[in-house]
């Protein structure tokens, strides 16, 4: 596997090809039908977008693990429903003023892409909201709603770290897995 080094020409081209594929899919979905005409016009339009509005390459040095991804998605939906109900209940508890807290959660994963994905997942779940993110130390500052006491706060912090574990299992590199305290080789054995 590759180490995190400055993006090479190959990385650039790979990012651009991925962008063209993704944009073509969106173009076809927008037209609502998958035809040859849509496919070619989509490739043309997305190539133009990628060439005229270039973005820095996205570093991705992990591996995609389908089972981990499925687990991450299912747990995310479960969290989403549970948290939505919790916040809704808080909203209807008249005469009760919810206290909240800003919590610093130092993440163990390092790549920008994975950090973004954790931040997105945390934000999408009602009850937690990213206030600041420190790119250098990969620390997320999260505002949590309905925190009752110190112990509850620690539980919520654990919750975010477990979400990070699941993401590392879904998309992380071997190094990131090790940082999360998961042995990559042991993981493979357990799955087989």
């Amino acid at each position: 596997m590759r180490a995190a080094n400055p993006p090479t020409r190959r990385d650039r081209i790979r990012t651009q090809v991925m962008a063209v594929i993704a944009l073509t899919v969106v173009w076809n979905l927008l037209w609502g039908a998958f035809t040859w005409a849509n496919l070619f016009s989509g490739i043309l339009v997305s190539a133009a977008v990628v060439i005229f509005f270039p973005l820095p390459p996205v570093e991705f040095d992990g591996r995609v693990r389908p089972l981990g991804l499925l687990n991450f998605a299912l747990r995310f939906i479960a969290d989403l429903v549970a948290a939505s109900v919790q916040v809704a209940v808080l909203a209807f508890r008249f005469g009760h003023r919810p206290t909240s807290a800003i919590v610093a959660v130092p993440l163990r994963i390092r790549s920008d892409l994975n950090m973004t994905l954790v931040a997105e997942a945390v934000s999408l779940i009602p009850g937690s909201l990213i206030v600041e993110a420190d790119h250098e130390t990969t620390t997320l500052y999260i505002h949590m709603l309905g925190v009752e006491d110190e112990e509850h706060l620690e539980r919520l912090r654990e919750h975010v770290l477990r979400l990070e574990d699941r993401l590392a299992r879904a998309l992380g590199s071997d190094e990131e897995l090790r940082r999360c305290g998961i042995d990559p080789s042991e993981r493979k054995e357990r799955r087989s």
Binding site: I102, E132, V147
Partner: peptide, 11 residues
């Protein structure tokens, strides 16, 4: 006064 903890303040 509504925050139980503010771990962002030092940083």
């Amino acid at each position: 006064e509504l925050l139980l903890a503010d771990e962002l303040a030092p940083d």
